[in-house]
Design a binder for these strands. Structure first.
Lengths: 219, 219
DNA sequence: CGATACGCAAGAGCAGTGCTCTCGATTGTG
DNA sequence: CACAATCGAGAGCACTGCTCTTGCGTATCG
């Protein structure tokens, strides 16, 4: 039942975006709006469920794309496969992507349940970098750290790499976060219309940017 | 009158986000909602006016920050000043930023009036890069183009540099777009909550990322 | 087998929304 | 002075999220 509600809500998401109407999904299910409240105490709770599902769907897609690269030592291929999977998923599910990475809904505060699901995609990316560092096959990275990192940023790097990539140097972790930012920045700018009248060859441009970041990280 | 409406609407924007209520702003002005329709034919038109104002406000802020660097040959300083201005403006006006760079409002299609205003910020960034290339003081860029660019991407680069930086090589333009993506990606991820539980030292981290991009571009 | 309790959906209703239309009043102009 | 243009008020429509009460059906327990 809750799954069916989510399914119908997902279809409305595509057209209505974040302001989907409970009454509309209820109508589609030949129910009355108040009946939905038995399953989801509020609209925000339904949104939260959709968000968690979306994070997991995206995460699973990216994990599968990375896993599909047979030779685990072809780090650059893994990076390109994973990032392309993010973009592909976003293009296929623009409303869900906007829900995850777009402007937060005004009154809505993301509960902590979402963070585990949200972490799946970054973990895949971090794994690729960590694998490369661990096996010592990382090229000399394409960036030149111009000034020493401040202590507070180092502390953040320490926490960010956590137990996924504990051995990664701070400088490499910073470059990895650059890749993460570049990835979601590129997808967001494209999906949110900032590429209109600027970039036409979007897939190629995306690949170009991701290749540049791969160079930066030494993949 | 229209200015006053926008002013009141701006204050509501901070709390209500994109779904601001015409009736609420009308109440604040001791008017009835239907009276507003004499000045803005619809809520979307009011939103459009706010968006254009916001683009111009951001653009003016960034232009001023760049212009404040006395020595025009200190490219890295100009880049840091401009990018910090973007982040500072976004932190000071989160709702406006979300309106510009967040998920697009479902039914809303940005009219072409906005693109001129939207271009002001990228133009400042492109100018910095073009000035550096023009005066020949660009360092050897920190990236190694690993594969030749495809023809369609080159065409996009050609159009993107337009008449702002007509002499810029495609590879440098691509790096510049990387910087642009990184800038707005970093600000969006921070503002939209993706840095929660990940990055604490946000200003320092931002500077670090922007410095890395400056290296990439050779600034 | 009968009575009770539970799960579930329906309906009415409240306060709020964008938007349209009509109707007065006020103001400025020929 | 009369006319016209402008502007705000009010009512009303269809819609929203959400709450509360009511009633139906079924399953469980004595």
């Amino acid at each position: 039942m809750m799954a069916e509600i989510k399914a119908v809500a997902r279809t409305h998401l595509a057209t209505d975006g974040a302001n989907l109407s409970l009454r509309a999904v209820a109508r589609d299910m030949d129910m009355v709006s108040s009946a939905l409240y038995r399953y989801y105490p509020s609209r925000d709770d339904l949104l939260t469920a959709l968000i968690i599902d979306a994070y997991n769907d995206l995460g699973a897609t990216v994990e599968a794309a990375d896993a599909a690269v047979a030779d685990r030592h072809k780090l650059r291929e893994r990076w390109l496969a994973a990032t392309r999977a993010v973009r592909g998923w976003a293009l296929a599910n623009p409303a869900e992507y906007a829900l995850l990475y777009g402007s937060p809904v005004p009154g809505y505060a993301a509960p902590t349940d979402t963070i585990a699901a949200a972490a799946r995609t970054p973990v895949v990316l971090a794994r690729i970098l960590a694998d490369g560092f661990g096996s010592g096959q990382l090229a000399k990275p394409g960036y030149r750290p111009s000034a020493p990192m401040t202590e507070s940023v180092r502390a953040d790097m320490m926490r960010a790499r956590g137990d996924i990539a504990p051995e990664l140097p701070d400088e490499l972790m910073l470059a990895g976060l650059s890749g993460w930012i570049q990835l979601f920045g590129a997808v967001s700018l494209e999906l949110f219309g900032q590429f209109n009248n600027v970039i036409d060859a979007r897939a190629e441009f995306f690949d170009e940017q991701m290749a540049l970041m791969a160079d930066l990280m030494g993949l």
